[in-house]
Design a binder for these strands. Sequence first.
DNA 1: ACATTTTTTAATCATCTGATTAAAATGTTT
DNA 2: AAACATTTTAATCAGATGATTAAAAAATGT
Lengths: 200, 200
Amino acid sequence: MAKNKEVKNLDTSTEEKIIQAASKVFTQKGYVATRTRDIAEEAGINLALLNYYFRSKEKLFQLIMAEKLQLLFSVILPIINNDDLTLEEKVETLVENYINLLVDNPDLPLFVLGEIKANPEGFKDRLQIRKLLQNSSFIRQLRERRPNIEPVQFITSLLGMTVFPFIAKQILFADDKSFKILMEERKVLIAKWAKMILET
Amino acid sequence: MAKNKEVKNLDTSTEEKIIQAASKVFTQKGYVATRTRDIAEEAGINLALLNYYFRSKEKLFQLIMAEKLQLLFSVILPIINNDDLTLEEKVETLVENYINLLVDNPDLPLFVLGEIKANPEGFKDRLQIRKLLQNSSFIRQLRERRPNIEPVQFITSLLGMTVFPFIAKQILFADDKSFKILMEERKVLIAKWAKMILET
DNA sequence: ACATTTTTTAATCATCTGATTAAAATGTTT
DNA sequence: AAACATTTTAATCAGATGATTAAAAAATGT
């Protein structure tokens, strides 16, 4: 028998291949548009094998979605709660790290936001972002600095400037090469503009 | 026989009911997630009637999508090409009109952007936004004012600040009522912030 | 080498869904 | 009212798709 799953295929186990494939197809096409056959083909395996490893399309999707949410949270949470960072430092780090993440995962925003809209109830529990934000030192610093501005207005703008280009990529940008260059430029631009907003 | 289709049902002809229903369901759920049966039910008619009026789901979708693109363009194009408006006036009007449009059609951005991503080829011809922008007086004014900033960087930020809240609504905002209030506030905020960016 | 467990496959099922069809109902003109 | 055109419906079809099954193949332990 093969008890140690870890020892088998050191490079890419079948399970890992499926997860990789599912991650790619799901984020590219979304849940409904994705056929389990697509994932199987992408993974280079048979369809039935998918249901052997993961009981259903839904289960596999939940796994991928949890991964993606974790990825997004892991960039935001440590920063907005870090009491050692000034407001300006938080903004800089947030923009820098977020753009880095999105350059490597350009499909992430539209995927996650689309799935949330398609099935809001399924995210009710997992998405307490608002509450996590509410109690963050980031919000506290924002309120201190600009008492007359709703923190959510500033955050929406910061996120909008950062995330929107990846959502509207197809429309606004010509080719992938220049897009990446512009996104690098954008790190300093957004940080500068955000700080201006905080100063006024 | 009934030659004058217009005379029949003055309030809502069957065709109009179907279009209304399709508009609602498509923008809410997207193309693949929408079943023709959903549209029929929403319109209060039988399924076969859909294929009687519009030959197929695809045809009906194309009609709706064309409507929505037209809606979006009709807000942007007249403004960015209006030589009588200063750069600041363009920004103000653009933000004001766009938020007004999105408050009435909050599903529009995610719908259009999602469908473009799902089928980029189908939009290749219809989406010359980049070219339309390129030759606009808006771009010319931006280049004059801030020669050191790529116009697309500014435009992406302006659109991001304006459109993103409607895409991330579910995540960032608590309830619909406060959302609308904040979006009203946002008109002046974005205009102010955008003008600051242009000044520096 | 043998037995046992794990992995993989081909074939099949049941359901969903877009579309069609034939016929009934409704409306219009004469 | 009769004849004709238009509108609406119920029933059905064909293809796609998620899932299952039974059996073969491969890996592993003794």
